[in-house]
Design a protein around this nucleic acid. Sequence first.
DNA 1: CGAAGATACGGAGGCACCCTCCGCTTAACA
DNA 2: TGTTAAGCGGAGGGTGCCTCCGTATCTTCG
Lengths: 212, 212
Amino acid sequence: MDDHTDQTRKPRADAVRNRERVLEAAKLVFSAGGSEASLEAVAKRAGVGIGTLYRHFPMREALFEAVYRREVEQLGELAEQLKNEKDPIEALRRWLHSGVAFVATKKGMMAALALAVQSGSELHAFSFERLTKAIGSLLDRAVAAGEMRADINPEDLLRAFFGMCYVHDQPGWQATALRLLDVFVDGLRVQPPGKAKARSSKMAKPATKRKR
Amino acid sequence: MDDHTDQTRKPRADAVRNRERVLEAAKLVFSAGGSEASLEAVAKRAGVGIGTLYRHFPMREALFEAVYRREVEQLGELAEQLKNEKDPIEALRRWLHSGVAFVATKKGMMAALALAVQSGSELHAFSFERLTKAIGSLLDRAVAAGEMRADINPEDLLRAFFGMCYVHDQPGWQATALRLLDVFVDGLRVQPPGKAKARSSKMAKPATKRKR
DNA sequence: CGAAGATACGGAGGCACCCTCCGCTTAACA
DNA sequence: TGTTAAGCGGAGGGTGCCTCCGTATCTTCG
């Protein structure tokens, strides 16, 4: 685990720089154009040859991975901060809500990502672990405080979160996702028999417009 | 709206037959290989020329649409049947659970579908309406019976359902989805202050294994 | 039934993108 | 500064997407 025991050259400066450029370009291109965007477009935007792109990211999937990895990191860090929140359930809900806002800026990324994750790659392992740990800590706190049922594990919650965020097709999807998450959190809450429906007052607005 | 007022020829028999063949082939191919599968493979499997495929379904998306439309129909019909169930909430839950099983057989289809729906096509309008109506009737019954909170509309519930079904990557995803849906339904339930946590006995199994 | 006309079929071909491969360039190390 | 390995770029072979049009087949009408 030393730094220079097995004669490893220092990585070339231009290689590092190019890798960074490609990542940045990919983030922009995928954000805008979705997973459809051609890798050649990414290379062009990054100002590197297509060959360079492929050396750094041998498969299309690898590029998604790298781009997405950063985003996941950010979500994880957010959870860390929220652990300072007083009310544990509120902290959890805040995280979920923030997650929605975060996802909202990703647009096309999500579709690409979904496909990438589907393939059962290592990306899945990484992000799942990172986020599970994050959400798990929030969850544990709430359970320990006796405010939340203990039969749902972090993985489940994470899945539910992603699921609800996934459906973003119409303009108002964010509000919907937030509402759905609130309901879910209500379902998780341990209701003291006495004030069973008290917390519902937190959901200020009723559903938008009861169709049909 | 008559049948033969504006001189419409009867559609050619071979055209109808070929369309059917392509649909069947597409269903199989997409089910197996996911959205990656080439349309030329579909054409070959259907035993028609690539040109024929493209005339019937001008865009890749159109093919997904047509295939998916049937599946949606089936889900809708299932809801009709479940309206005869006694317990309205149980009926709703049964529908959701059946939905999971249904989705489970689709495998790769879901990814393709997600992309198609994303594009805000007419498919979305159709399936959303069909399923919303189906789920809405189940929901209304439960609300009318005073067993369910009234501030969640059918659209929301549908989104939640799809969201939870979407995350299918690992072997055990079905069990997870079912559990998540149960939690969600619990969240929807109006809890009589007296027996607040009584219904939780319905969730026989605890979460599989509380990781970390 | 047979001719006429509409309609559909098939697959060649143009295009875009994927990915590989290799001669040239450039940074790291001595 | 010279040596050497790592990295760069983009030409090029391959595949799949989609269009276009000459040919085949079905419907209709006399």
